[in-house]
Structure formats: C-alpha cells, structure tokens
Simulated scan of single mutants.
Amino acid sequence: MKFKNRITDLLGVEYPIVQAPMGWIARAQLASAVSNAGGLGIIETSSGELDAVREEIAKMRRLTDKPFGVNIAHAFVRDETIIQFVIDQGVKFVTTSAGDPNKYCSQLKAAGLTVFHVVPTLKAALKAVEAGVDGLIVEGGEGGGFKNPQPVMSMVLLPLVRSHVDVPIIAAGGICDGATMAAAFALGAEGVQMGTRMVASAESPVHDNWKQAIVNAAETDTVFLNQFSKPALRALRTEKTTAYEKVHGPEVMGEFRNAKDLYFGGDMEASIALSGQVCGRIGSVEPVAKIIGDTVREFEATVSGLAVRYGVSAS
C-alpha cells in the first residue's frame, strides 16, 4: 500500500509510522531499523546522556540513508547546546515533549526543522498550535511512559483534538498493528507512533526478560504510578510497581537510578519497566520490518474490509 498524506510529505517517509522516543531504547540500533523499514526512527534525549545521544545521531548516518528524527524532552535536557547540535546534524524532524512548546519551537523552525509537540490534553494541543508547531503527537493515557496525571484515553482525546485543530496529528497510545492504526485514522490521525510494540521487537536493545514480560502480559498488567505527584507514569506490573501503586512522590522516580539493571541486565525488579496497556495485545517478539509490513497490510485490509462489509463506496 502506498501512503501519501501530510505526515508522509512532512517526514519524507514511505509509511506514517513513527517509533516512540524511549529513554535508552530509542537509539540507533532500533531507530535505524524503523527508518530502513519505511517508518521514521527517533533518537531520544530523555536519558539525559547527551554525549551518548550525539554518538547515536552520528551512528544513524552510518546505518541508514532514510529520514529520521530526534526527540527533545524538555524536562530532561540539561545541556541546551543539544538544540544547536541537532540543527547542525541536518536532522529535519524533531518532536518536543515534557515541557512548554514555546521553549524551542521558534529556534528549531527558524533553522528549517519540522516540529511536532507531544500533547496529552486539548488545552496542551491548543497551546502547541499557538506556539507554531507543524503538527501534534496526541498521546492517549493508555500509552506507556511518562503521562499526564489526569489521563485521557485515545478514543476520547483524538477526535476531541482533531475537532479543534487543523494541523497533522500522529496518534500515540494503544497502537500496535494495522487495526489500531486504522482506528486512529478514523478518529482523525494521519500517522501513528508505536512504543511498547517497538520495545518488544527483535532490534530493541532491552533485555529479553523485558520483551518476554510484554509478550506474557495481560491487558490489565500495567499500573498507573505517581498520579498525584508529577510526572505520572504507566509501567508493567511487577512486585516493585505494585508496591508503588498507592505511593506518590520522588521516591518513585528515584527507582530509575537502577534503570540499566532492568533495561539491559534483565532484573525486572531493579527499576520500573515502562509499558502501555497494549502489552496485552502483543503476542511475540518480531523484527521491526515485519511489524511495520504487517501493520501496513492489516491497515489496508481493515479499511477495505469495512467498506465491503458495510457497503460503503468511494462515490
């Protein structure tokens, strides 16, 4: 299936499928696989390891000749020279998140970059559009990672935002295949972002224990933590996260000091394994190219199948 819409035009990609900018995970190994498969790989900055991020951006140039992007997570950027560095690398697409969209938008756009901002509410979406962003990543509360303390799920949030803005929307939260991509498009999106599905991919750098925990998870096997003390976050249910389910405050965030023991060492109780509720729909670890190819084929089959089933014609 050939896609042509505002997202593919802006990003220069074959498929409007973007990989989420997950800390320590969204680096060249995974991101290049996504870009090479026709989607858009994203390099993260939320780990705060900006020297490593610089190396990963350089590595992307060696691993792919396809477009890729960088995420600038405001809350985690401690060295603002990263902004000019991203510009100097010739990156054409940036997502901004976890902060005020006004902070870097004008600087990035003045340098010719396309800027999308991640939003969890209508209020945030309107603020981002007013700031001059080119588009939005509308992130439902069912998604994994750092969340708004008052989560709004994609079924409500996507059509709400679409009814108030004209800019292109990439849907995030609950997306893992062609059926959910088709649903997001029906609600007003022109692209989708996958996080948890990409964590459980062959090219994901995380330990196999985490990947298998996603594969084995039920749809109820996430917890929403820190709801009354920002940032809130959604993670896989483990003994540690279950214990924190009713605890709020900085001690929850302190658990990320041992993140690499979980991410790369496989100790699922060492830290917090961020994950969306869509873990309950992921049944196997697959190569990125297969994930994206299957998603595109299922999207086409879903859309055309609905038209046939309900007698809808283009006329």
Rank of each mutant, 00 (worst) to 15 (best):
C279E: 01
L262P: 03
V223D: 01
R234I: 03
T241G: 03
Q277G: 02
A218R: 15
D261H: 11
K246S: 12
M253R: 09
G265Q: 03
D221G: 06
E219W: 14
R257W: 09
T241A: 00
H248E: 11
H248F: 15
K240L: 15
L233E: 05
G265H: 01
Q227G: 05
G254I: 12
S275C: 08
P231N: 13
L274K: 00
R234V: 04
E219R: 12
I272K: 00
L274N: 00
L236F: 04
E255V: 13
N258G: 07
A243F: 11
P231K: 08
A273T: 07
A232E: 06
D221L: 08
A270K: 04
Y263E: 10
R237E: 13
N258T: 10
P250Y: 06
T238C: 00
F264G: 02
N258A: 09
V215P: 00
Q227K: 08
F228D: 13
G265A: 01
D261R: 07
F256K: 04
N258K: 08
R257N: 12
I282W: 03
S229M: 14
K230T: 11
V215M: 04
G254F: 08
F224E: 05
T222G: 00
A243E: 15
K260L: 06
L225C: 01
F224P: 02
G254N: 12
N216H: 10
A270I: 07
E219M: 14
G280I: 03
E239Q: 08
D261W: 03
V247E: 14
T220K: 15
S275W: 00
A217C: 13
E255P: 08
D267I: 00
G249I: 07
R281D: 13
V223C: 01
S271T: 02
F228N: 15
Q277V: 02
G249Q: 12
Q277M: 07
